[in-house]
Design a protein around this nucleic acid. Structure first.
Lengths: 342, 342
DNA sequence: CTGAAAGCGCTTACAG
DNA sequence: CTGAAAGCGCTTACAG
């Protein structure tokens, strides 16, 4: 490794000033075409690359975005929730397409999270992604926004939120699922997932569920709702708890696919057949949903579109333009797990 | 957004020099405990964060690693190969645990890839991940290493490789699969996947396959090998091609789970039952493998361990210490797709 | 269209 | 244990 080549080396080699080299490399229209060509030749020859640290320090923006991925503190192995992994993929792609690098960081919700990516000038803005207790996060979010940090969040779109967020239409999605289950002849539909403002996304799905019940003249029965977080384990446990309630049910609407898949295992372990004994539906449409047996009815959230909108909104904020929260449509995907023979 | 707070502000507020602030913040042992405490108080009060660009520019290292993820140019949607997604998760985790940030970048193998992360000082070293034609990459790899760039690669461990790489024992893995299929009574075992030095990982799996055949006194039949890249689509097509060869087969060893899952669909479409008509096995043990019907026999590659070893090796290189290529054990996971009743 | 010069916010010898 | 000073490699007014 010989001494690093700088813009001064290029300048010497080309016989122009360093300022001109810098201008040429940044695509300034002020540079003569011929000069530009000679500079480019020298750059190629010496394999010169602009030092991003110097450039960012001077120009006060970095050309990188930070993605903070929040996880449950329970997740000790390396399996990230597949839905978020998919979001991660689409956000990475969207950033790259727009010429931005992406810095990724895992965060524990419980711990004090380092949202200092913006403060420390490592990134121009940050994207927040992950489940977790919303009420516990609200204050930090507010502080971030007050500090002037550019940030967007994936999650429920609420009236009182301090930040710009992008999420899917969870209420409609939940409504669509339950309406479908009712159309299949189900009447006693259990809901697995938290239904409180601590988890607004699940809560909205639950609201949609209750709305659909109401529209069909049915009532939500408290014993048919069991809390669960978005893991298979939790889904399995929730179904067992539901059984222990001793109430009858002919369908299960799980607030996420992971919960549904856990519940599916528990049902099988108890000799209950899906969909004949119990119809089952989830939410997210993770890849696995179409591979389980029977394939799982669910609600598709378009992660590709979500990633693009998140990144575009963040870029808008960075440019000082106004950005608005957005709600993406939720689309019901019917598969065998909810299709009654009769 | 008021003017940015710098180490000079902290110095003023504390009544020490800026140098001392910098020392205190970097944990230098040369700073008085009392002084350090007062500096820390000022830092907390003003919510000061060290500017990473200035720091990296001066100190000549960035505290970040870059991950280059290569993809097939065909992948236009946002579905990243699940195996690499899992690797991505474990690499991100391993980096974070060791105090490094991770910059992620998608690259097209075909295009000229920007391995300039090191040159442009955005990262201290890079991790290369993804399938692709190895022979076409070799030169670029060589150039990278010659330039003194710190880099490690996930892939087959070869004798003539220019770089440090980490991979699993593909030969043993392939051998284990075919030995198992033979033990199940299969005699005519097809192999779906490239078997050339362009794709060393698949090639090694194929070598293991041929070795196992040899050990059982069987011979590899050219018509039973069909090229495929690691996608479901390609697996589906490969199986159809195999059928069109008009040769009989009682088992299929797919070089990856994605290929196996595609083949499974094709088999079903042709009315062939797994495992009774055709036993099936894959490679990778992606999450989906245990969810398909029947669950897929495969070879587990420990992505968590892989991520840690990759990062540790890269960090060793960055510190100027010697690092060696490593081969991880491959573990056969037997599931229903390969279990013959008889 | 081009150059000389200031300065971004740090880290780190050097001197005490 | 602390301070004054140089300098990392750029970008960008300013002047021509």
């Amino acid at each position: 490794m010989k001494g690093k080549v700088t813009s001064f080396d290029i300048a010497h080699l080309t016989g122009v000033s360093q300022s001109t080299v810098s201008r040429a490399l940044r695509g300034s229209p002020l540079v003569n075409e011929e000069t530009r060509r000679r500079i480019q030749a020298a750059v190629d020859e010496l394999n010169y690359k602009v030092d991003k640290n110097a450039s960012s320090l001077r120009a006060k923006h970095t050309g990188t975005l930070a993605l903070l991925l929040f996880e449950d503190p329970t997740a000790d192995d390396s399996h990230i929730n597949p839905f978020f992994l998919s979001m991660l993929g689409s956000i990475t792609r969207a950033s790259a397409q727009r010429g931005y690098d992406l810095l990724i960081s895992f965060q524990q919700f419980s711990r004090d999270w380092h949202a200092d990516y913006a403060d420390s000038k490592k990134a121009d803005g940050i994207i927040l992604l992950g489940y977790g207790d919303y009420l516990a996060t609200r204050d930090k979010l507010q502080k971030l926004v007050d500090q002037g940090t550019c940030c967007v969040r994936w999650g429920a779109v609420l009236h009182d939120q301090p930040d710009v967020s992008v999420g899917c239409d969870n209420v409609s999605g939940g409504q669509a699922v339950t309406t479908h289950l009712i159309a299949q002849g189900c009447r006693r539909i259990a809901f697995l997932g938290d239904a409180s403002s601590h988890y607004p996304e699940f809560f909205d799905r639950y609201r949609g569920h209750v709305k659909a019940l109401g529209d069909a003249g049915l009532e939500a029965e408290p014993l048919l709702q069991v809390n669960a977080e978005s893991t298979e384990r939790s889904g399995y446990d929730a179904l067992e708890k539901l059984l222990s309630h001793g109430v009858s049910f002919d369908a299960v609407f799980a607030a996420s696919d992971l919960i549904a898949i856990g519940a599916m295992r528990a049902l099988a372990d108890h000799g209950l057949k899906v969909p004949d004994d119990v119809a089952l539906a989830g939410f997210d449409d993770i890849t696995m949903a179409s591979f389980v047996n029977p394939p799982l009815t669910t609600v598709l959230q378009d992660t590709k579109q979500a990633g693009e909108i998140l990144v575009d909104n963040l870029l808008r904020l960075i440019r000082g333009e106004p950005a608005e929260s957005a709600m993406l449509p939720a689309r019901l995907i019917v598969r065998r797990s909810s299709l009654r023979q009769g």
